[in-house]
Write a protein that binds this DNA or RNA. Structure first.
Lengths: 197, 197
DNA sequence: CGAAAATTTTAATCCGGATTAAAATTAGCG
DNA sequence: CGCTAATTTTAATCCGGATTAAAATTTTCG
């Protein structure tokens, strides 16, 4: 079977998912240049070369990690929007979900620190998705301002601040459940507090 | 003259400072593995090998960039503390200063994305400084809670959120003065708003 | 069981960029 | 002007880790 995702087995996909998580953990903790494919492989009880059965190379691995991160962010925002409510409600719910994703079972989400070392096509794709996500969140903020549930503010900059706070989480969170609990409680509360009318 | 900083000339120090800024810009924009010493050298109109006249190697270059980032953060916090006032006043002033540093003449401040690829000694030093800075900021928050100028909150987590928002700035700020103006206005305002009693 | 497909390993190769050494150029100064 | 130190370049070398190819092992399933 080719490593492309065409006729992929369940087992294959599972292992690939585990690979992405292991890679995300390594990249977050050891940095991009600091993690060799061997490091990632060891976490799976494999040899470095075996990784190439699941992925085309290191570039591709980072790219997939970032796609996964983008997927999760988007999923959380979509879910929050689906659940409805005021702009405030949606924003708050999104923060709860995304912070929980960072700190919970969703496993480590890769920090997008090495976008520039992607191929131009991959880079553009990731950047485009980031932009879309930011714009979507800004739209939620704008909606909240319109419906009176949020105070008037510069949605671009406020969004930057909030996203930064969330995106930075993997820098200091390393799996301690007690810390996770604090984060899930405090982050949405503090970040939303500054948005109340 | 050795490349150590003992009997360094004014001109030498200036060039070294320019080197650090160029490196910080490269690291922020192209990532660590994505920037070769040649990239940095070109910005200074030099050849890659010439860099070794000013610095021991790439490791050292990252380390110095991070030390510079730590210096700036510390300086801004110290200055805010010196100017006095309530906990609220100090925290707000610190944010104004640090955001302005990120967006202003202080030049690009390196994102600490590659701490793990430092030597163990350098890594420990940088991490220690980060910790101290975080603790100092938390102390400011605690002071504000005590003097009634800030609402009661989990200072550790709230600090994490605020630091994250600030540390993420280089990810989206690329020198546009109009954007800088927005950031300097909006960031302190939004981040402090959530801390009012 | 046994053959074909899937998975992993072993053992090279390969390569870009870091690093080094020595030579060349430039700048300060008696 | 000529000497010395400072600065930069040219031209290797060096090396770790990515990548590849082929072989070995394991799994699947008739």
């Amino acid at each position: 079977m080719t490593s492309a995702n065409s006729g992929a087995t369940r087992a294959f996909d599972d292992k690939r998912e585990r690979l992405l998580r292991a890679a995300a953990r390594c990249f977050n903790e050891k940095g991009y240049s600091g993690t060799s494919l061997k490091d990632v492989a060891i976490q799976l009880g494999l040899t470095d070369a075996a990784i190439y059965y699941y992925i085309a190379g290191k570039q591709e691995l980072v790219y997939q990690c970032y796609m996964r991160a983008a997927d999760i962010g988007q999923r959380m925002l979509d879910q929050a929007i689906d659940e409805g409510g005021t702009g405030f409600d949606v924003a708050r719910r999104y923060l709860e979900l995304h912070v929980a994703a960072h700190c919970g079972d969703e496993g480590p989400i890769a920090i997008m620190s090495e976008i520039p070392s992607l191929t131009p096509e991959h880079r553009e794709e990731i950047l485009a998705r980031s932009r879309v996500h930011s714009r979507n969140f800004e739209a939620v903020l704008r909606r909240g301002i319109d419906d009176g549930s949020l105070t008037d503010c510069d949605v671009r900059m406020t969004g930057n601040a909030i996203m930064g706070a969330v995106n930075w989480i993997p820098k200091w969170f390393h799996g301690d459940p007690a810390v996770a609990k604090d984060a899930v409680r405090t982050f949405p509360e503090y970040l939303m507090r500054g948005l109340k009318p």
